[in-house]
Amino acid sequence: MDARLADYVRGQWPSLVRYATMLCGDAVEAEELVQSALVRVTLRWPFIRDKDDPGAYVKRSIVHANINRWRRVRSRETVTDKLPERGVADGSAAFANQDAVRRALAGLPPRQRAVLVLRYLDDMSEQEAANVLGCSVGTIKSQTHKGLTKLREIFATDEVMS
């Protein structure tokens, strides 16, 4: 492995797993996603243009690995309005709300999840997110709208905000 990529992997591994966890909603699955994406990056390293800053490329690969994974397992994955598990109150309304939002996010379809993570974690523009996901800006807009609407519904059902 190229020394620059090795340095990047060592330095960014925890944050990449965290990023993937936001995308797929499962920490163990996230680690597998990051590994798969980095294997692809390693194999394609000679073709990567910005070798000093491979972060964007790696994140794109993780997003696509997650979408590909979803395509493979979608027959087994069921999207539900119910939160995967109930949070445990820690005495802080802010923390409770954030935790509830993350769990609600995990209940969204993977493509909506990816759009929201790109837009609100990576602060990508609609055009940038469209480029990463290989779809139109209109699709990003509609997926963002649907995702946020769904989050509101789940959130309201959970009555955390109240």
């Binding site: 591994w13 925890p14 944050s15 797993v17 965290r18 966890t21 936001m22 920490a27 163990v28 996230a30 680690e31 802010a94 709300n97 954030q98 935790d99 939002v101 993350r102 996010l105 929201l116 993570v117 609100y120 974690l121 946020l148 989050l151 509101r152 959130f155």
Partner: peptide, 18 residues
Amino acid sequence: IEELLRDALQSAPTPETL
């Protein structure tokens, strides 16, 4: 919800890695 989502994503804890 957008503010809450942004805060939730950016404050997510780093999971333990295997």
